[in-house]
């Protein structure tokens, strides 16, 4: 099903972007982890106490003083949601619809390679990129914490948190990739593909903001990613994670199906 030459090309085309995102993540991780102070509670925690509403909007309200909660609150409520999401949007656009829009898809389809294989290979490129980015963040978090605060990090919970993030990002990647296959025009594909996750994220921020708006959380898939619940091992949070993963598979399969059946004016 997979076409290796195309896969290799896709990876070669994504690594620059991956390095940029990895660099940004490295910077945030280093700065935020250095602000953790196990004895006193960090400056950020003070800030969160002073302005709980504002910090809650971007998910920065740690449940406990543990290091893993600290990371979850300050890195996995915004940074690790937004940057991999950007990667999904850019990557999905580049992998399918841009080739159709420009016309370079012609060469990929004027060959004895099934359209299903083309789409599957490109999905694999996107998933590889996401996997690499989140694995890197996981290792970065563990190494950074072990150097600065040996033994403080609950590594098992932290890894689970990253698996949860991967599921969420796969779901977002699925949305972007589906849009890339449905639309023939790059600008609509990006508009809708970026619009849906962005809207979901904004709704979640609104739901976080206050009691009155809390019901909004039922309108966004971000609610399925319950990072607090994941690190405390709640069954409901794990189910949400699995639901996102299953959703991603449905989205990617639909994308393959649509791409295989659609009329291409190339």
């Amino acid at each position: 099903m997979i076409n290796w030459p195309l896969y290799k090309r896709g990876i070669r085309g994504s690594w620059k972007m991956l390095i940029i995102f990895a660099a940004v993540i490295t910077m945030y991780f280093s700065v935020i982890i250095s602000m953790f102070d196990p004895a006193l509670g960090s400056a950020l925690n003070e800030f969160a106490k002073a302005m709980p509403e504002l910090m809650a909007i971007v998910g920065m309200n740690p449940e406990s003083a543990e290091l893993v909660s600290f990371l979850e609150a300050y890195l996995y409520g915004f940074i690790m949601l937004v940057f991999p999401m950007l990667f999904c949007i850019l990557s999905a656009n580049k992998l399918i619809v841009r080739h159709i829009d420009r016309g370079s898809m012609t060469f990929l389809l004027a060959a004895p390679v099934k359209r299903e294989a083309v789409a599957f290979t490109q999905i694999k490129v996107l998933v590889t990129g996401l996997f690499a980015l989140i694995t890197y963040a996981t290792l970065l978090g563990i190494v950074n914490c072990e150097i600065s605060f040996p033994g403080e990090l609950d590594i098992k919970s932290f890894i689970l948190l990253n698996v949860g993030t991967l599921c969420l990002q796969l779901f977002i990647g699925g949305i972007c990739f589906l849009c890339s296959c449905v639309f023939t025009d790059s600008k609509y594909a990006v508009g809708v593909g970026a619009g849906i996750p962005a809207l979901g994220f904004i709704l979640q921020m609104m739901a976080n903001a206050g009691k009155d708006l809390e019901k909004i959380k039922y309108a966004t898939f971000f609610t399925l990613f319950d990072s607090d619940g994941i690190i405390s091992g709640e069954t409901f949070a794990i189910r949400g994670m699995l639901a996102l993963f299953a959703g991603a598979i449905v989205l990617f399969s639909t994308a393959i199906l649509i791409f295989s059946k659609k009329d291409l004016h190339i």
Binding site: R102, G103, S104, T106, F107, A110, A111, P112, V113, K114
Partner: peptide, 15 residues
Amino acid sequence: VDIQKTLGYIPGEMV
């Protein structure tokens, strides 16, 4: 896919 095995194509626009 079967047909493409033994087909050569020059597109009207080279991208």
